[in-house]
Design a protein around this nucleic acid. Structure first.
Lengths: 176, 176
DNA sequence: TGTACATCAGTGAACGCGCGTTCACTGATGTAC
DNA sequence: TGTACATCAGTGAACGCGCGTTCACTGATGTAC
């Protein structure tokens, strides 16, 4: 829900109602709303990173096709139109404006994501530093592309589609 | 101020105080806070696009070096550490969650930005469609790179610097 | 030049509302004997 | 097995606060005569 509406776009009462409870009981589980935000940030990143590390265990061609499918999905109209986005896209703009705890968890998430992406993009003849740099560039492309595509989807669907397609092309070129 | 704190991060009273007035007079100028947000969005994009179109009037080598300097600046630590960011980075995550008026102005801004960037990146032997696709990819790289670098700058400065450097490398490669 | 008046940007108190948080309580659960 | 009691997650009214917006007003400005 934070990723859908933003941290300030959803209140404790709504969150608890969605969980089938009343708002008063919230503080039996978290010391503050901020603490839940941090935990939710961790959870979102953990899931995304686990997805990648599972992919990294595959080897050779299987890993390459899995990664290509991952990029396809990430930059698909379906992903763009989903209410919930990747944590970096949904919360990246808010992260620097929030408290220390959240910012630390967000940075850790990005760090782990880059490491996992580097493992997935590793190739036999490629140096580790190169794979890492490529992972960073790929991540910037994915995040920037999806952020823009999502930001304009309601007002200019054609351009949104064009952005997804162009960035997908570029990522495929980079990953090759 | 919207770009610094987010649309919901700054109130009418604070905005008017910053303008040296009290909050009551606000509605002599705008029908609602949302209308000011839309106007501010336009203003931010107009300035950014004007910057690019001025560059596009230059020709040949001068334009190329001007563009290289632009990218250098966009992905510099100075830009990352500035309180106010590029409208796409600062507001891209919020745009899809806001009203129709704002979303339309945001989309128009992105559209114009891409056109202007395409003109700046045009090269004699290059087809217009290619220049446009390259502009889109470059924009995604710039926006994604700066968004991530800003999101983690407080908690992991080294990684933030690394992202800026890696993306800058990639953009230079693309623009060549 | 001088006077009367309309205009309208700016003032500041007040409004209703939703937020995060607190707290006295309820009532189901599990343990001790 | 049955009873008494402690625990503690969940309840819902209440709080203080800041928000966007409204409105009766003030007072400077510019125009008409």
């Amino acid at each position: 829900m934070f990723r859908e509406k933003g941290f300030d776009g959803i209140g404790v009462a709504d969150l608890m109602r969605a969980a089938g409870m009343t708002h008063g009981g919230f503080y039996n589980h978290f010391a503050s709303k901020e603490e839940l935000e941090s935990a939710a940030c961790d959870l979102a990143f953990d899931k995304a990173v686990a997805n990648l590390t599972a992919m990294a265990t595959q080897s050779g061609a299987a890993r390459r096709t899995a990664f290509a499918a991952y990029v396809d999905r990430y930059l698909s109209p379906r992903m763009r139109d989903a209410a919930v986005a990747c944590p970096m896209v949904a919360l990246g703009g808010e992260a620097p404006r929030r408290g220390t705890a959240l910012r630390r968890r967000f940075a850790a998430g990005v760090r782990h994501y880059i490491v996992a992406l580097g493992e997935v993009m590793a190739r036999p003849g490629r140096k580790a530093a190169q794979a890492r740099e490529q992972a960073i560039v790929t991540l910037a492309l994915l995040v920037g592309g999806l952020l823009l595509a999502r930001g304009i989807k309601e007002a200019d669907l054609a351009l949104s589609d064009e952005i997804l397609a162009s960035v997908q092309n570029a990522v495929s070129g980079h990953a090759r």
